[in-house]
Design a protein around this nucleic acid. Structure first.
Lengths: 395, 395
DNA sequence: AGCAGGTGTGACAACGTTGTCAACCCTCAG
DNA sequence: CTGAGGGTTGACAACGTTGTCACACCTGCT
């Protein structure tokens, strides 16, 4: 800017005025300055500007993993709202690691972002208190923080959604309904489990711990859990899955279990009357590369299959038939849910609306709105597609 | 920092030294400073630091849409590399709009990011020249820029991938192969079309424009294009789709076309022997919310169905049977491709590797590596799963 | 002529850091 | 006792902006 001023033969401040379209500059002078700017290829340094003015016109977004469709939708929504508000977005994936979340948040704060949208990985956000005190606004999305921090939060109706989904299965005649959820330390997983129990309670059905399995949505774990349930004396006739990744893993598990000794007329497992040959798909390529640093694929075939096969194969029920007729409702909608056979019934959240709501709330705060802390709950939406309307299997 | 210095009874510079773990500070003094920092909840202002030091330790990432699984994978990879290099990431979605891309890039440059990873929407990046001259490094990913700008680029082998995929169909006996690609202004779309033609040429097959349709992957357009092709005198027996979204749209189109008058034993369309009822899925909810601002869903049912039904329904071939037996290979892997019936054969790119490669190249440049401009091409990978190995239908 | 009020311009400090350099205190060898 | 040298500390300028204030000039009025 100094150079521009020298070139144009004016003072620094005049250049600043031209650059910022401030009034009170002679048209001729302004033109001279603009030419100098053009000539020198000058671009204002927003870092310095920010230092002087206080506001950075940027926000930080911390999510679990951009590569997860749920969060990437949320991400895009936040981005759009930010753009509309003239703000840039720092994005960071915590990978469900509270330590990394903390580092990201603090790094964003050190850059003096105006505000934060956080999908928290941990519960303890004491480290945020000084930042909030220093004037950085934060909105929690998808999951709350502990009660210690009083801060705006936008959630989905996790319990309600799960209740609706499970009630839907009950309404279709199911009495033995399994629940496959994410790691129990995760807020949404707990809430959905609560919803599951509430629906059972409301229908007067007992809660059977052997029908519930919580843990990371890794294929090996999910497959093992399902095989175990199907081998029970009183196996489930329906399954409620607690999130999108778990739903997909469960479907793959059914495919694996059914394919072990497929029935000729099963709708699952490719055993239909079509002439389509099962391709020579090697197991390593059965799905698109997962987001994280691998590890999931390698365990799929080895891990459970060898260790549990005996137990399950000897089940007196014939697990294959059970697997092929299991009704399913999943929490979270996902791409192609409608093209599977049967199509998958889901309880849909709206990640875009979630992100938009959180970001808009943040910008309202930044604009000076100082009402009481808000706690917004967004509705979920049951989408019946077929898999959730299957009747209980009887053999 | 001033306050901290005052509280601790030391000079500004000493606090700076403590904060930055510089050597040469008495342990007792350092401890006193740390206590003052703790007491006041002080956090270094990285903006000011950046101003003084020159490097911002941040990069900008401009992609088409974070919500697209391909780009969100790329995104995550870039993020991870950046984190490893102690850098933060500004993310922005251009939405395939050159103007918005330009705004984002310039905004990032104004913040003095150290470097940029750009998936360009347009071809003309003249506006970047001054920035590059000013020392900002840039790496183009997935698509190149025009020849005017000499800059590092990481691409996939688009033509080669398409060639492989189409050759695969030819090897399975197909002679009439349709190509459904993205908008022809997009580099990758053009390249893949070239690969398609090369494969035809290599096999001595004619190029038939009536089997080729390029345009945005909207459901209505894709459905119409496919219906038109299936109604031809010599309809295609196989289809190659030019990207993930188009593949999915094509599958939905087949579902729509087949379902219009389904054959009892078709593997597609839910007409299998299973007892699974088609759920009462309303058309508005057939898929998860698409990323952009809607518009796609509403047109799915209305747009084409009413205007073209007559033409297609009167086809002398019975489009349903054609649709049900069409072999498919798609460019891009996608989630659940392996769980459809038949599973979908794809030519897979590796978005994570793409992002990682681009980001690592960027950071090598930032570390001072000054070799000639690099142009890296990543391989693609054919994954046979079933849909690409179907034989040509004969009626 | 003198003065109010407006327009255009510039000098200067400040934002919160860090790099440079100098000063201080101590210890130890000459 | 003197001086060299290391360890510790601080004063100051600079990074590139913008807010504040003041100045110079012009216009139109009394």
């Amino acid at each position: 800017m100094n150079d521009v001023a020298a070139t144009a033969g004016v003072a620094l401040k005049t250049v600043s005025r031209v650059v910022n379209d401030e009034p009170g500059v002679n048209a001729a002078t302004a033109e001279r300055v603009r030419q100098a700017i053009e000539l020198l290829g000058y671009r204002r340094n927003d870092g310095a500007r920010v230092l002087r003015r206080g506001r950075t016109a940027s926000i930080g977004l911390v999510i679990e993993d951009v590569a997860d469709p749920f969060y990437s939708g949320l991400s895009r929504a936040v981005e759009d709202v930010a753009l509309r508000n003239g703000s840039l977005v720092f994005t960071g994936s915590s990978g469900e690691d509270p330590q990394r979340e903390r580092e990201l948040v603090l790094a964003f704060c050190a850059r003096r972002v105006d505000g934060l949208v956080i999908v928290p990985a941990g519960y303890d956000h004491g480290y945020l208190a000084p930042e909030l005190h220093a004037g950085i606004r934060a909105v929690f999305a998808d999951r709350p923080t502990g009660p210690a921090l009083d801060v705006d939060t936008v959630l989905c109706d996790n319990a309600g959604g799960a209740r609706t989904g499970v009630a839907h299965l009950i309404a279709h005649g199911h009495r033995r309904i399994a629940f496959l959820g994410d790691n129990a330390v995760i807020f949404t997983a707990k809430e959905r489990l609560s919803g599951y129990r509430e629906a059972l309670d409301a229908a007067g059905l007992p809660y059977d711990p052997s029908l519930v399995s919580m843990g990371p949505p890794e294929q090996a774990r999910v497959t093992a859990a399902m095989a175990g349930m199907l081998a029970l004396d009183h196996p489930p006739t329906a399954l409620f899955t607690g999130n999108g990744q778990t739903t997909v893993a469960a479907l793959r598990a059914l495919e694996i279990l059914s394919a072990r000794d497929p029935e000729p007329n099963s709708s699952r497992g490719g055993g239909s009357a079509s002439a389509s040959p099962r391709g020579p798909a090697s197991p390593r390529h059965s799905g698109p590369a997962s987001s994280g640093p691998g590890g999931q694929e390698s365990s799929r075939e080895g891990g459970w299959a060898s260790s549990r096969e005996g137990g399950w194969a000897s089940s007196r029920h014939g697990g294959q038939r059970l697997a092929a007729s299991l009704a399913i409702v999943g929490f979270d909608d996902f791409q192609l849910a409608d093209l599977l056979s049967p199509s998958i019934t889901v309880v849909a959240q709206d990640p875009i609306r979630l992100g938009r709501t959180a970001a808009e709330l943040l910008f309202r705060r930044l604009a000076g709105e100082n009402g009481p802390v808000e706690r917004i709950q967004l509705p979920t939406h049951l989408i019946p597609r077929g898999s959730g309307e299957l009747p209980p299997a009887t053999f």
